[in-house]
Structures are given as structure tokens and as C-alpha cells.
Design a protein around this nucleic acid. Structure first.
Length: 846
RNA sequence: GCGGGUGUGGCGGAAUGGUAGACGCCGGGGACUUAAAAUCCCCUGAGCUUUGCUCGUGUGGGUUCGAGUCCCACCACCCGCACCA
């Protein structure tokens, strides 16, 4: 290799990608005796093209996977496709293509894009969830779950998206609108398939405690989502002779109850036979569910005229229908304690109901009045008969005990988590493997009939599910009685597909979903990397499936992902052109966004190329098509090569934060690629002589980069590599310098693998740098023999000096006092104290 | 409203309680060149009475010999959840 040859990514990238493929460098061997490391990034939906967010995500995983390989691990780093879902059907409707063809074309294209980036992936294990050899096994697992009692059907009110014509999970309803279509969600009653995730609520909550390497933020979000609360369920005797069960988390405040409230949907409310009641209920239902509406919503109530007998005092409490009581939480009815619940307080204030105090800061303050709001905090129980003087916690226990003793109710744990509705009235998903028979009811499809494949001949010109309209597909004989029966036409929520794919990556037998022994070798995933948007849905469902399979004895592992990392987005500034006023006609300025390629810079200002109009540079925000601030990975790889793009993805921003894309930034990265290349070309295997300081720097950098990669602090690793590069460039030729250059090749290999292979080969090294072990660190070289000591006077820096490492305190003090600058600062003042931190600083206090 | 996070140069960001601003980008100056590109070198927080000094990590307090870092109060922005009894 000679110094006048420029590094040419256009040829080098593909050459090394082929070399890795030919050598099967990244094939994961389950039988390897090496320690295993499973590195996984959330697999992509094949939307058509890789976007820059994928590039960042997979680059991070790739650096870790390559580093793990170098440090002696057998690495499993697979890739696949989360290939079912609505966009394929939308494309079918809009373009008249088949969802399968559209999806497979996309996969092919995106796979080629990923290959251009040189990721260290084991493509032998590639899978797509839309293929029968994946979803057939999913059907088998679904039947297993059914047999384990974790699948059931129920008639239920569902969130119906009128645009996508499908059911949405609660998690897919955002502010009352469909998460994809944005349409106002309607309520409909349908027979639906459910997974009993609530059976695992306690486990899923407790399991969070063991996930130390998950971000606290995600654990907290899941905790809130599961939403455990402990309390008391008991019944009021109503004046109409019925019993009304209510749920409360504050049984200690029971003597403060001044009214009872039920939800509008509650049977007690529904049974009120009056025009006014019906009108009020209708009013409650009309209320919006958006954040803004709820925040400002006034507490409204309707007095039913019914009264409820207080279980301890025997007082008659009025029963209201209230708009703030939810039917689907607890029992849909509450005992209202206005003194100690803000909502109840507002309601009582509005309707002139009593607001008794039953918790006070001290017994003496039992008569204290309220200051315009409820007091929900700690204190001592007052005005509460046998509870007086107790702490909140003691009173809770006592009330639960007495209520249970009287047989009026029980202590109860209530969860916010609901069972997971998995039915979708869609074609492009896993067919639910069940058969409806008039005689036998719902019967699971026999396992030997799996996979139940989707019919190819379907049309999408009519809204709704084509499986329902299909002429022949759904007709089948009942596996039990042999009579005429019909297939289930619902398909599974695509979140089911992504709830177990990590198991299939680990082991892919043809005749069953996975092999337990193989799974045990690889799982749990050592490092899972993906977007924060999956903090609840995907990650909770995957945890649930893993636990359910463990519960059924199919696998041992209980938590699928040992470490989770949620990476930030790639952002970019926006370019906006304001259309000039048309002779003062325009009132509001009209504007449109233009893409980065459509603008040019002149004299420090920015203009649209085509029109010459000035462009306003906007906020740095997430890339999106509508804001036209997207950057296409293919284009930038063409311009700069894979290594520069990968390097950019790792530089500057900490990986959990957003990364602002910039043209200047990628150019800087590209410059560095070529700068390294020149340095590598200057490698002289025959150079003689030792450079101790350089050796130290090299070894320190190796150790630091290793630490940084293991902590996923890629931006810091990058900075260290820049630093070492600068040092090596300035160093005089020596054996140490040549060694440092070889080491540098290895340090950048996980990040810029193509450049590294090219340099490695150019230096005449054996084999691939991808197979080379991580450079060894000599611990003796990590320690400096000289240190810089800061000298402070009254805490302010006055001078620095160089001292041998480990110098005695007295010597450092003497050296500090000998400093002219320090003496000038002290200016003859009396020295009261001298603080010496060995190898660090001397602080003189006067 | 509840919960969580983040505030450091023109920008992205470094900094086990111990020299704030590593490293990168932008910008300025210079070298090389007929010229440009590429490359290399130097400068680059602010201010001042410039051998040096003062100020400076959102604001105000506190602890400490010493605070970006710890404690208290506040402000701003971002994210999640949301009438969950």
C-alpha cells in the first residue's frame, strides 16, 4: 500500500463485505465453546427503505457485536423482518399490488441497503414474520397458550378504527384516536381473542426489579402501565335494596365518605328510569377524552335519589352518577372522600356536600379547615371512631380487617393492566388457528394442519377483511366432528409476531418453533437496542410471552432482554420557504418545506435553488417526510462510503440522545477516514526504537475505548480515537509508533470495518481484522510516571507543576510554595492551611 | 395534575467533589500552489487597565479548603401517563 493511493470506499466496501460473506465471518455457532453473546437490535418493519434511524440503531449494535467477537465471544447478531402489518394492505389498496409481493420486494431492497453498511450480521438466520415457516410456528405456540388456559374469547367492547376498519389495542389508542390512522376511535362489540397477560401482572411487575440494566425510565413506564394498587373492595347497602360494590385505595378515610358515585355506564345508573338521568348519561359519554379536555373538564354529577348506608356509621349517603368515575377501573363505583381526594373535593364543593376531615397533621388539629383543596398526604386519623390516633397505614389494615370480619368485603389488589386483545380484522397477519363449528364450538386447528397459510387470491378493492369474503379459504371440516365448519378469519396483532422472534433467531428447527436447548445457550439477549417508542407495548408483550412460555415449561429463561438500550433519534434542521406576499393580498404568510438538496448557501444565507427565494432554517427536529428534512442512507453512502456514515452515527452525541445530522459533520467524518488512511499508509513495520510515552498513550486508549464500548459510550470512544490519532501523527518513527498504528486499526475496526480491513491487509497482517483479538493492555503502561499538579490559592488555580507520580505530600507542598505565581498571589498573607491531594493538587488557604 | 429527564462556548458535547470547555463541527489567520481542491500549522468562552487579572456550567441560597458535580428552593424546555378511586 502506498501513501498516494486514496482510500476508495466505492470499491473497498463491497470487496470486504464479500470477503466476510465468503468466509462466513459472522456466522453464529451454537456449539462453540466460547462464551456466548447475543446482540440484538429491534428488527425493522419493511416499509420500503432503510431510514437513518435504522442506520444509527444497527451501527451501535454492530460496534458492540464486533467488539464482543474480538474479546473472545461467540456472537449471535441476527437480522430479520417484522413483516406483517397494515402498510402492506394500504399499498395493496392504493397501488393494486399484493401485500406479499410488496413486502418481499421491500425486504429485498432493504436487505441490500443494510449489506452496503457492512453490518456483522448472521444472514443465515434471517427470518420474515410473514412467511409460513415463521407464522406457522406462531400458530402452534398460540394453540399451546390456548391449551395452557392463556387464550380466551370474549364478547367485548373494542376500540374500532373506522378508517383502518380494524380493532385497536388500548395501547394503540392515543388521545382517543387510532395510533396509525389518527381517526376518532369508536366503541363496538365484537367477539375477540384475548391473551391473559393479567395472569402475569404480578410477575411482570416484580420482574422489573431484576432488570438492572434497563433504563429506569422504561421500567417506570412499565410499572405505571401495569398499575398495581392495593385497597379494599366492599359493598354498600342501597336504599333500593341492592348492594353496590366499591373499590378504594384509602379505606383509612372511610369515615370521611360523604357521598357515593357511580360511572355513567354503571348498572345502577343505567337502571334509573328518568329522562333527566338518561340525558345526563348521554352528556357524560359525549365528553372528549383528549388531554386538554380532561384537564379542564368540570366535575359533573346527577343525584339518583338513592342512598347508601355507611358500613360503620350507618349514615345515609347520597348516590350520584359522576362523570369522573370510570366504569372499567375497580368496580365502576366509589366511596367519595372529599377531604382527602381532589376530585371528590371539587365535586363536593360544587354540589354543597359535606367535607369532613379524617386525616390531620396531629390529633390537636382535628378541627382544622381545608385550604381550598383536598389533603391527600400522610398524617394521623381523626374524627373516625375506632381509628382515631392511628397512622394511615395502620388504619388501612384495621378497616380491611374489620370489613373482612363482618363479611362485607375484602382487601383487594387492582391492576390497570388489561388483557391483550389480539384479534385483528385484517388479511396481512398470522391467521388465528381456530375453527368454528356449529356443533363443537371453537376448536383449535390440529397441529399437523399447520401452517394455516394465507390465501394468495384476494382483492383489496372493498374495505374490510378479504378473508371474510374469500370464496373457499374459510370453509373447512371440523377437526372434531368432521362436519361443515369455518375458519377463524381474524388474524393476530403484529405485536404477537415480535413477541418471540428473538427465540426463533436463537434456534430454527423446521418442525417446531424453537429448540429449548439452543435457546438456553443464547438467551437472554445480552444487549437489546431500539427506540424508546417500544418502551411499553413491544417490550411488555415480549416479556409476557417469555414468561408464559417459561410457565408452560417450554423454556427456562424468564426475562428475554438482560440489558436494554434506547437510542435517540436522528434529527435535522428544516428548510422552509415563505411565499412572498402577492401585492399585499396574503394575510397569513404561506410557506412550504424544501429538502436539503433543494437549497444552496450564498454569502452565509440560504436560498431555494429553483426559485431563488430565501429559506428560513428551522428547528432541529426528527426527520419526517412532511418536513422534508430526511436524509437518505443510500445517497450518503454513495457520497462518503459506509465507514464515514457509521462513524458519524457514533460521534458527538451520546447514543441515548438525539443526533443532529449535518452536512459539515459527515464531511468531517469523511475527512477523518482519509486522514486515518494516510496514517495507516505511513506504517513502517521495520521502524526501530521505543517511545514510552506513546506506548502509554496507546495502552491507555485501548483500555478506555474498551470501557466506553462496553458502556455504549460510543461518542467518548470516538473522542479517544481522535486523540490517539493526533498523538500518533505527531510522534517520531519508532517501533512504538508502528505498533500504535496497528493498534489504531484494531480500535477503529468495529466502527469502520472496511477501512480497517483494507489497512490490515495493506500492513501484511494475517487474516481478517474482524477475526483478530482485541489488543492486549499492559496494566503497567496504564500508570503515568509523571503527573501535573494544580496549585490553588484559596481554591483558585494559580499555577501548575509537573511532579513524579506518588511524590510525597511535603515535597508537593514545598514545590507549590516555591512557585513565583503562588507567592505573588499569597502576597505575604499568613498560611493557615495547606491541602495536598497526592498526584492531583495543592490548595493553599490563607 | 402525577411521574421522569435535561439545562455547560456560535453548535454537538467532555469532565471518580480537585486545572471547566477533552474531542468534533463552524469561524479566523497562515503555509504549500500559477490558482484551486486536498493537506498541514496556529488561534478560537466573555470582559479588562493584557508579565497578568476578573467573571463564567439555567436562577437564588447552602455544605466544603475546593461545587458543573452534593443539599434546599425556584425557572425553562423535553418525554411518558392521565379523572385509575
Amino acid at each position: 500500500m502506498s501513501s498516494d493511493t486514496r482510500f476508495d470506499p466505492a470499491s473497498a466496501d463491497a470487496r470486504w463485505q464479500n470477503a466476510w460473506e465468503k468466509a462466513q465471518t459472522f456466522r453464529a455457532d451454537s456449539d462453540s465453546p466460547k462464551p456466548k453473546s447475543y446482540v440484538l437490535e429491534m428488527f425493522p418493519y419493511p416499509s420500503g427503505r432503510i431510514h437513518i434511524g435504522h442506520v444509527r440503531n444497527y451501527t451501535m449494535g454492530d460496534v458492540l457485536a464486533r467488539y464482543k467477537k474480538a474479546t473472545g465471544h461467540e456472537v449471535l447478531h441476527p437480522m430479520g423482518w417484522d413483516a406483517f402489518g397494515m402498510p402492506a394492505e394500504n399499498a395493496a389498496m392504493e397501488k393494486g399490488v399484493h401485500p406479499g409481493g410488496w413486502t418481499r420486494d421491500n425486504i429485498e431492497h432493504m436487505k441490500a441497503q443494510l449489506k452496503r453498511l457492512g453490518f456483522a450480521l448472521d444472514w443465515n438466520r434471517e427470518l420474515a414474520t410473514c412467511e409460513p415457516d415463521y407464522y406457522g410456528h406462531e400458530q402452534a405456540l398460540f394453540i399451546d397458550l390456548y391449551e395452557a388456559g392463556l387464550v380466551y374469547r370474549k364478547e367485548s367492547e373494542v376500540n374500532w378504527d373506522p378508517v383502518d376498519m380494524t380493532v385497536l389495542a388500548n395501547e394503540q389508542v392515543i388521545d382517543g384516536k387510532g395510533w396509525r390512522s389518527g381517526a376518532e376511535v369508536e366503541k363496538r362489540k365484537l367477539n375477540q381473542w384475548f391473551l391473559k397477560i393479567t395472569d402475569f401482572a404480578e410477575e411482570l411487575l416484580e420482574g422489573l426489579g431484576s432488570l438492572e440494566n434497563w433504563p429506569d425510565k422504561v421500567r417506570l413506564m412499565q410499572e405505571n402501565w401495569i398499575g398495581k394498587s392495593k385497597g379494599l373492595e366492599f359493598s354498600f347497602d342501597l336504599s333500593n335494596g341492592e348492594k353496590l360494590p366499591v373499590y378504594t385505595t384509602r379505606p383509612d378515610t372511610i369515615f370521611g365518605a360523604s357521598f357515593v358515585a357511580v360511572a355513567a355506564d354503571h348498572p345502577v345508573a343505567q337502571a334509573i328510569d328518568s329522562e333527566e338521568a338518561r340525558e345526563f348519561i348521554a352528556l357524560c359519554k359525549r365528553g372528549g377524552t383528549t388531554a386538554a379536555e380532561l384537564e379542564t373538564a368540570e366535575k359533573l354529577g346527577f343525584d339518583t335519589g338513592i342512598t347508601a348506608k355507611h358500613p360503620f356509621t350507618g349514615a345515609d349517603l347520597p348516590v350520584y352518577i359522576a362523570n369522573f368515575v370510570l366504569m372499567d377501573y375497580g368496580t365502576g363505583a366509589i366511596m367519595a372522600v372529599p377531604g382527602h381526594d381532589q376530585r371528590d373535593f371539587e365535586f363536593a364543593t360544587k354540589y354543597g356536600l359535606p367535607i369532613p376531615r379524617v386525616v390531620a397533621p396531629s390529633v390537636e388539629e382535628a378541627g382544622k379547615s381545608f385550604d381550598g383543596e383536598a389533603e391527600a398526604g400522610e398524617g394521623v386519623i381523626v374524627n373516625s371512631d375506632f381509628l382515631d390516633g392511628m397512622s394511615v397505614e395502620d388504619a388501612k389494615r384495621e378497616v380491611i380487617r374489620r370489613t373482612e370480619e363482618h363479611g362485607r368485603g375484602t382487601g383487594k389488589t387492582v391492576w390497570r393492566l388489561r388483557d391483550w386483545g389480539v384479534s385483528r380484522q385484517r388479511y396481512w397477519g398470522t391467521p388465528i388457528p381456530f375453527i368454528h363449528c356449529d356443533a363443537c364450538g371453537v376448536v383449535p386447528a390440529p397441529k399437523d394442519s399447520l401452517p394455516i397459510t394465507l390465501p394468495e387470491d384476494v382483492d383489496f378493492q372493498t374495505p374490510g377483511n378479504p378473508l371474510v369474503r374469500h370464496e373457499t379459504w374459510k370453509h373447512v371440516d371440523c377437526p372434531k366432528c368432521g362436519g361443515r365448519a369455518e375458519r377463524e378469519t381474524d388474524t393476530l396483532d403484529t405485536f404477537v409476531d415480535s413477541s418471540w422472534y428473538f427465540l426463533r433467531f436463537a434456534s430454527q428447527p423446521a418442525d417446531r418453533p424453537f429448540d429449548a436447548e439452543e435457546v438456553a445457550k443464547w438467551l437472554p439477549v445480552e444487549q437489546y437496542i431500539g427506540g424508546i417508542e417500544h418502551a411499553i407495548l413491544h417490550l411488555l408483550y415480549a416479556r409476557f410471552w417469555t414468561r408464559a412460555l417459561a410457565h408452560m415449561g417450554q423454556i427456562e429463561v424468564k426475562e428475554p432482554f438482560a440489558s436494554l438500550f434506547t437510542q435517540g433519534m436522528v434529527t435535522h434542521e428544516t428548510y422552509r420557504v415563505f411565499i412572498p406576499d402577492d401585492e399585499g393580498q396574503t394575510i397569513a404568510p404561506r410557506s412550504y418545506y424544501v429538502s436539503p438538496e433543494e437549497v444552496e448557501r450564498r454569502d452565509g444565507k440560504v436560498f431555494e435553488k429553483s426559485s431563488g427565494l430565501p429559506v428560513e432554517i428551522g428547528r432541529v427536529i426528527k426527520m419526517s417526510k412532511s418536513k422534508k428534512n430526511v436524509v437518505d442512507p443510500d445517497t450518503i453512502i454513495d457520497s462518503y462510503g459506509a465507514d464515514a456514515v457509521r462513524w458519524f452515527m457514533l460521534s458527538d452525541s451520546p447514543p441515548e440522545r438525539d443526533l443532529p445530522w449535518s452536512e459539515a459533520g459527515i464531511e468531517g467524518c469523511s475527512r477523518f477516514v482519509h486522514r486515518l488512511w494516510r496514517l495507516f499508509a505511513a506504517h513502517d513495520a521495520g521502524a526501530q526504537g521505543e517511545d514510552k510515552a506513546l506506548d502509554r498513550k496507546t495502552h491507555q486508549t485501548v483500555a478506555a475505548v474498551a470501557d466506553d464500548i462496553e458502556a455504549l459510550g460510543f461518542n467518548k470512544a470516538v473522542a479517544r480515537i481522535y486523540e490517539l490519532t493526533g498523538t500518533v501523527e505527531k510522534a517520531a518513527p519508532s517501533a512504538s509508533r508502528s505498533a500504535a498504528i496497528r493498534t489504531l486499526v484494531q480500535l477503529v475496526a468495529p466502527m469502520m470495518p472496511h477501512l480497517a480491513e483494507e489497512a490490515w491487509a495493506g500492513m501484511g497482517m494475517d487474516g481478517l481484522v474482524a477475526d483478530a483479538p482485541w489488543p492486549e493492555v499492559d496494566p503497567a503502561l496504564l500508570i503515568e510516571d509523571e503527573v501535573t499538579i494544580a496549585i490553588q490559592h484559596k481554591g483558585k488555580l494559580r499555577d501548575t507543576l509537573t511532579a513524579p507520580k506518588g511524590a510525597a505530600k511535603e515535597d508537593l507542598e514545598a514545590m507549590a510554595l516555591a512557585s513565583e505565581k503562588v507567592q505573588r498571589s499569597i502576597d505575604g498573607a499568613e498560611i493557615r492551611k495547606v491541602i495536598v491531594v497526592p498526584d492531583r493538587l495543592v490548595n493553599i488557604v490563607t
